[in-house]
Design a protein around this nucleic acid. Sequence first.
DNA 1: TCGAATTTGTGCGTATGTATC
DNA 2: GGATACATACGCACAAATTCG
Lengths: 255, 255
Amino acid sequence: MPSAERDYLRIADLLRQRIRAGEWQLGERLPSRAKLALEYNVKATKLQKAQELLISEGLLESYAGSGTFLREPPVRRRMYRSLHPELHNPAPFRLDIGEVTEGSGWESQTRSRVRAGERLAARLGIEPGADTVHTTYEFLIGGRPTQLAESWEPMAITGSSRVVFPDLGPYSGQGVVARMAAIGVTVDRVVEHPRPDRATQSQANMLGIPVHDLLTVIERTYYDVNGRAVETADLVIPDSRWEITYELPIGRQQP
Amino acid sequence: MPSAERDYLRIADLLRQRIRAGEWQLGERLPSRAKLALEYNVKATKLQKAQELLISEGLLESYAGSGTFLREPPVRRRMYRSLHPELHNPAPFRLDIGEVTEGSGWESQTRSRVRAGERLAARLGIEPGADTVHTTYEFLIGGRPTQLAESWEPMAITGSSRVVFPDLGPYSGQGVVARMAAIGVTVDRVVEHPRPDRATQSQANMLGIPVHDLLTVIERTYYDVNGRAVETADLVIPDSRWEITYELPIGRQQP
DNA sequence: TCGAATTTGTGCGTATGTATC
DNA sequence: GGATACATACGCACAAATTCG
């Protein structure tokens, strides 16, 4: 453990105290680092280090040009990735949005004839260079994006002339399953690989979160009854806004 | 985007080239920062920044005192969290260890009468302060830990005198389900919350990975047929070593 | 065995870039 | 566009971890 001076830890503690004391409202802007530095009679870099610590703890967030803010504990919504037989729900997955209705939904943009690279081809089990339909999604709640997604479907399956239904969105399962059913493809199972990642600058901008904030990226692939991949997607889910739930039944094998 | 000097990016590129050219073996130590800095005729801090970049990309890893090494692309094992009816496997989950047999298995340590705190009590649906059985696990492959876990069971269920079977490990599902079956408790479903996190110093030491490396922590809870939580656990899974797979069937509802 | 040398990591300052108001 | 905010590049001193004579 480094025990150099670490004066910035003292500053961080002082800030923590003032925050706990309720000196600033949630979402309120703190005095600038320059002001705080003057107040504590230290260099601004110490304040920066102290604030970086509190930022990593989720207490503060800062944005270039605008300031450092007391972070509001974000509403963490639940996202279900589960099989819920007891709900008699034909869709295998539910997205629990609860009361939110206004300004919510998926915005998407689709491009056809996107050639698959190495990795994508491997995921879809097609030849590298083969055509796909590529769709990017933003999931909005209250007019602000809270999730991002990108999906690819082999054009050999979807067909070049067929209209896709991107509005249905990559979630809810309903979208992909129903769309595939419409063209005679029976979706049989889905495989998901959740992995941790840090938000890039561009992702942070779109999602309105700090850079390097933690994300879960779910690499999801749907397969038909013949084991052929019919769609694959990357779901980008900021940890600060979503709790992911996998729910699985146990021990009720009825062969 | 900052475009100050960023000379360290040039250094990083030079290093990348030499790495791609195969100048160093996997796992081999690179020349020290001081030597490389002399060679490139720059200050050592530039080399540090450059190497930090390559470290974040997973190309290098460095340890205080010993040096900076070419990181071997770690074997990424698959961990299945799925219902596999077609395999006729009575266990709901499989852990794909493949060929590995030697030096593999769970090491665990159990403590009884551990009082539940606020959060733990909420997860188990018990009163804060109630007794639990707490077990910590290390999952070894080839003699080295590659996963960590911690589990808690309400003592009201397990019973204070009853011997638990921690050796069975928190995985494979078999452990918890079988143990509970032995005391007349039927495990009905499992809920898992995967979330991203960064490795603490202590976790990094135990797992032999760099600090702040990405992890998935799965908060897992088993419930019995009455909806009562019978066990909850935190599974700590380093992203560099494991690919997590959830596999779910679709659209085969037989009510 | 133990201390010195080596190597990486941390704290912190200054200059300057970039974003926002 | 100027003023103000945070972010980045970089240097230096020194701490911590490891290695080695």
